[in-house]
Design a protein around this nucleic acid. Structure first.
Lengths: 211, 211
DNA sequence: CTTTTTGTTAATCATTTGATTAAAATATTT
DNA sequence: AAATATTTTAATCAAATGATTAACAAAAAG
């Protein structure tokens, strides 16, 4: 009866308004956490961003930590969820996979530019976070992608090529603040660069695999 | 006479022991800041790591912020100082430059694996930090490297290739916690991979430039 | 309409944390 | 050795911050 403290945990007890408020907080948390990281984020920042009273945050999510874990899990899924279906698809050629990885990552990260640095930082801070979840290791090793790379280029460990394509897709986003602050390129130039890379990266990857 | 508060600022007033203590604090700050970032670092962590009283930190460096700026400037220099001399050397071939960049970065980052994520995170947090310093933009655009890339591959913006080689060198270090936590590779495998990459990256870069 | 449950707020707590102070210890100068 | 200057420490401060509480408002149930 009085056990409906922490509504998030009570299935079916949600009313229209709850969802709206809870979602407002989650959206604010996503924004602030990904922008500033866990340590630099104050629960008051999130509350303000969400336009709600600070106490509500704890009412819905109990603690900063709990709210963060929710957001982090979501973000990790967002980043790594992309690659699984592509590299495991046995019906596509290696060429197609390379094209799909490049466009999928560049398109997604264009809309969430701070996703990679956030995830990489937080996983380094707490690696066990990832260890527990989906066994990415298995998935990668048994993937059709690794199989195809191994056939095409037997002398070299396939992880090299996974690192290369991910690096070429992701690195521009983690390094863009540097390139822009350094005056090497401006915001529009960066956008144009990304469009070009969608087509260039698969071509480059092919060239590397031919070596 | 009593103006020797904050000894760091008073030239020539340093005694043997000062340097030792000051350096102990700086070394601790380097370690903790690069490992945890600015926000997650407590001055007490640094004091403990250095084996000194907390007040001494403020005695020597006035504030957390000041100490951090010292460390950050050093780390930024450490990361970007590497590339300047190489890409500006007009007496070397493009091939040689590629080899030098790969070995310089992989060797340096092998000893300071958390350097890139630290610098990238902190520059994103405060981009004006970089803007004020050395004009990297100028240096890159006028570099012999960019010149040579432009000649070899006129159709494609040279920044692509700068991003590619930096990405292929740096990305393994920022992503290694992920690959290791995910069980895709272990620590020894990672070391071996890095050794291989020193030779492979220049070869791959050449292949890309031929496309 | 009354009662009960759920959602929201302002005020407050307890802890953490960056920084300071005043005094003690150590070194340097005269 | 005495006087002075410098380094180090323990104790403390004030602000920031995550979290709670108690009261109130709104909604749902009876």
């Amino acid at each position: 009866m009085i056990l409906a403290l922490y509504p998030q945990l009570v299935m079916g007890s949600k009313k229209e308004k709850d969802i709206s408020t809870e979602e407002k907080i989650k959206a604010a948390a996503r924004k602030v956490f990904t922008l500033k990281g866990y340590a630099a984020t104050r629960t008051r920042d999130i509350a303000e961003e969400a336009g709600i009273n600070l106490a509500l945050l704890n009412y819905y999510f109990r603690s900063k930590e709990k709210l963060f874990e929710l957001v982090a899990a979501e973000k990790i899924q967002q980043l790594f969820g992309l690659i699984g279906p592509v590299i495991n698809d046995r019906s596509t050629s290696l060429q197609t996979k390379l094209e799909r990885i490049a466009t999928a990552y560049i398109d997604t990260l264009s809309e969430h530019p701070d996703l990679p640095l956030f995830v990489l930082s937080e996983i380094r801070r707490k690696p066990e976070w990832l260890s527990g979840r989906i066994p990415i290791g298995e998935m990668v090793r048994k993937s059709s992608f690794v199989q195809q790379v191994r056939e095409k280029c037997p002398g070299i460990h396939p992880i090299h090529f996974l690192m290369n394509i991910l690096g070429m897709c992701v690195f521009p986003f983690v390094s863009s603040p540097v390139f822009i602050a350094a005056g090497v390129i401006d915001n529009n130039g960066f956008k144009k660069l990304l469009e070009e890379r969608k087509k260039l990266i698969p071509v480059w990857m092919n060239a590397m695999l031919e070596v």
